[in-house]
């Protein structure tokens, strides 16, 4: 019973994803193109990074310039995720020898 229900749920979600993937998408009357899955409607932020990253940050690797400069705060967050994980492992896998009863 549970398995059948889960199968129905799974198929529902998958069918939505499949619909989006093969959907012809919105029609842009100006360019005569369809926006299908995988062809973005906008590319201006990508182009900004490609054209300005080298000049602004002085890094040849644009990916690193995004990771550590434009979105450096996210990287700090990800680094603290690792820090949190380490602390959590240390906390959960500690032995209760030093704890009071």
């Amino acid at each position: 019973m549970r398995n059948i229900l889960m199968l129905i749920v799974f198929l529902t979600i998958i069918s939505f994803f499949m619909y989006v993937a093969i959907n012809p998408g919105d029609f842009n009357s100006q360019t005569g193109e369809h926006f299908v899955f995988g062809s973005p409607k906008f590319t201006d932020m990508d182009n900004y990074f490609i054209h300005n990253a080298q000049n602004q940050t002085g890094a040849n690797n644009v990916v690193t310039s995004i990771v550590f400069d434009y979105r450096g705060f996210d990287t700090l967050g990800e680094a603290s995720v690792l820090f949190t994980a380490v602390l959590g492992v240390g906390l959960a896998l500690r032995l209760l020898r030093g704890d009071k009863k």
Partner: peptide
Amino acid sequence: FNFFVFLEINSLSAAAL
């Protein structure tokens, strides 16, 4: 994306605690 990062910090630290 920043929201996601903090959501992760939130979940992980809460789970550890």
